[in-house]
Design a protein around this nucleic acid. Structure first.
Length: 646
DNA sequence: TAGACATCGATTTTT
DNA sequence: TCGATGTCTA
């Protein structure tokens, strides 16, 4: 152990010390589960500032989730004795958004562009398909095709070699044109266009390269082509690129993540220093042993062995149930018994592969009056009523956003129907025109009640947009709720669902206020940016409650007691079912998919500190039908000596 | 144009 | 099974 009195170097093992105090040049930290990865990266940032006198503002630190960014920020500033952490610390998406806001015009976008989330993306794509007379069932396939290309950095698809490819390319182009006309970027655009900005504009690139002396990246195994290229550009001048990750925990290939980025990092940076953090301080021996065995069945990996530092403990327990209700009941019984033994509910977690599985557990926990929280799941900003309000607000900032207009023109019902909006759509003239302007013209030219309603609607929006220039974000939200009649409309609904909708809108108001106080920014656009990329923290985050979440959501967390449920073939590992439109069987792809599922299993198991339970059910309700299932193949990969069947 | 009823499809995982 | 979307009627 190093540095007895220096808090930055205190209690580091040899490998951690090497990682923290690496001076300059590329650095690859292979950090196994529970090996002190976050500790290494935060200490390193603090060390650069303190021991190497690097200005915090010259450090760029990138993570994947807002939660990780927040934790990093908090820990670094604590290490620095309350001093500010680097300003450029955040998720890839938020950092790219920041760059794009400064330079959007260079790419032919308005400075006031909005960010589309996945729901918006799907709506935009649906509109495109409709216009092209293509069946809307294709939305998902096209969406993932487009996302896949964007993740690989392809904005203009190569020459099509088949009719199918030609259609795909046309849809991509039309979709991209639609976004641009609406003044919108999707998540993929944020990364890809930021990369374009750097690659095609030398002055911008220079500026960014001059701005930072060190670049640090967390969860590097989950970077895609575009993210890696961005990092390479930013670090090109000084080569101070520090990447931290674990190839065994790469679980986002469906989002374009390339394990190769970490597996082949030393090919791109031959003089990179490689440090392996191989000591696991989290899990008891049997848990670590079992997890290591399972992951050893994967072929594409660095193949490091983790040594368990916490010593012997309880064996991993495997349990079979008749169906998902029995499974849930059994889990809850075990939770109660651990609770009686003094384990905090908040230190226990139930993991599952798909969100839909949470239901049985929620029912069982409610029945026994055990508090729980579902992490992830239905997102706050995805709720209808919240999206309605946000659509109005986006429209005020960016009148070109026709998607938002289509969402709200008749919410609450104000007597403007589909026919009127169709008329307006037909009258859009050229790329400088917009649906809103066309609707205004239709209103002016239409007599009778309809024309009057349209004019009143346009007038209300214009009035709000005018106020939006003067008022702070919170007041605009209030005015919008009031003048659009949304709040009154919701208040009229006295059902429990209606009540909760009103509460959600109140929550939204609270969140603007909080944003203004915390950030000091009061303009609407800044808040909308925030909303697009950051989900509000889970309610009662620290309270006494059992945690329910998908395995993906569990990455980076740890619990004393973990239940991994639904371990059945086809569910976990997922896959095996292939619908009729799918591509022909591809053995390599299948193998890669299975290895990713196994990494997911590894992530799940290595979250546990003291107790690990693995559970499966022999039947399970799916689409309202009882289906029989076989135990997961991962269960057969467990080492006998660390496992007990109960 | 609004609301009632029927049909259809979904369950991976997220910034 | 459930929720979202589409169709029909007043």
């Amino acid at each position: 152990m190093h540095g007895a009195d220096d808090p930055i170097l205190q209690d580091l093992n040899e490998a951690q010390y090497q990682a923290v105090t690496h001076d300059r040049g590329p650095l690859l930290i292979l950090a196994g589960a529970g090996s002190g990865k976050t500790r290494a990266i935060t200490r390193r940032i603090a060390w650069l500032v303190r021991a190497r006198s690097v200005f915090p503002s010259r450090i760029l630190a990138v993570t994947f989730t807002n939660k990780a960014a927040a934790e990093m920020r908090e820990r670094v500033s604590r290490l620095l004795g309350g001093e500010d952490a680097p300003r450029w610390m955040g998720t890839f998406h938020s950092i790219c958004l920041r760059l794009l806001r400064q330079h959007a015009e260079r790419l032919g976008y308005s400075r006031d562009f909005v960010v589309y989330d996945d729901d918006d993306t799907e709506s935009a794509l649906r509109a495109v398909l409709k216009r092209m007379d293509l069946p809307r069932e294709g939305v998902r396939a096209f969406a993932s095709y487009i996302d896949g290309l964007k993740n690989e950095g392809i904005l203009e698809p190569p020459d099509p070699r088949s009719p199918r490819e030609r259609v795909q390319a046309e849809v991509y182009a039309a979709y991209q044109a639609e976004l641009k006309a609406n003044g919108a970027m999707d998540f993929g655009d944020l990364l890809l266009l930021a990369l374009r900005l750097m690659e095609e504009h030398e002055d911008v690139r220079r500026d960014i390269q001059e701005r930072f002396d060190h670049v640090l990246v967390d969860e590097f195994q989950d970077t895609n082509v575009v993210q890696y290229r961005l990092l390479q550009w930013v670090a090109a001048r000084h080569q101070n690129l520090c990447v931290v990750g674990d190839d065994d925990q790469s679980i986002y290939s469906w989002r374009g993540a390339r394990v190769e980025n970490i597996l082949e990092f030393t090919d791109d940076y031959p003089d990179a220093k490689v440090v392996t953090l191989g000591a696991n301080y989290r899990s008891r021996d049997p848990i670590m042993h079992a997890a290591s065995r399972v992951i050893s069945f994967n072929r594409r990996r660095h193949g490091k062995e983790l040594s368990a530092m916490r010593g012997p403990g309880e064996p991993v327990r495997v349990h079979a149930s008749l169906n998902e209700q029995h499974e849930a009941a059994w889990v809850v019984r075990e939770i109660v018994s651990h609770g009686e033994d003094g384990v905090d509910l908040s230190r226990m977690a139930i993991f599952y592969r798909t969100n839909a599985q949470s239901r049985a557990f929620e029912d069982a926990l409610r029945a026994r009056r055990i508090p729980y929280r579902v992490v992830g799941g239905m997102k706050f900003y995805q709720r209808k009523e919240v999206k309605d309000v946000l659509a109005y607000l986006r429209l005020l900032v960016n009148p070109a956003d026709s998607l938002s207009l289509e969402r709200v023109f008749n919410v609450p019902p104000r007597g403007i129907g589909a026919a009127t909006i169709e008329k307006a759509r037909a009258r859009i003239q050229g790329p400088e025109d917009s649906l809103l302007m066309a609707l205004a013209r239709v209103g002016d030219e239409t007599g009778g009640a309809t024309g009057k309603r349209v004019r009143a609607f346009i007038e209300m929006l214009t009035g709000l947009a005018l106020q939006a220039r003067e008022l702070n974000a919170e007041d605009i939200v209030r005015q919008t709720l009031d003048q659009t009649g949304l709040l009154e409309f919701m208040n009229r609904d006295e059902s429990p669902e209606g009540q909760s909708r009103v509460e959600n809108v109140q929550e939204l108001l609270a969140s603007v206020r909080q944003f203004q106080e915390a950030s000091g920014q009061t303009d609407l656009r800044s808040w909308l940016d925030r909303v697009a990329l950051v989900q509000p923290l889970d309610e009662g985050g620290e309270g006494q409650a059992v945690n329910l979440m998908t395995v993906h959501a569990a990455k980076g967390l740890e619990f004393e007691c973990v239940f991994v449920c639904g371990l059945e073939q086809g569910l976990f590992p997922m896959g095996g079912r292939r619908d009729r439109h799918a591509a022909p069987v591809d053995a390599t792809r299948d193998r890669a998919a299975l290895e990713e599922e196994r990494r997911l299993m590894y992530v799940a198991m290595t979250r546990a500190r003291d107790w690990l339970y693995l559970s499966y059910a022999s039947t399970r309700m799916r689409w309202g039908q009882v289906e029989a299932g076989r135990p997961s193949m991962f269960l057969t990969e467990l080492p006998r000596d660390s496992v007990r069947v109960v």
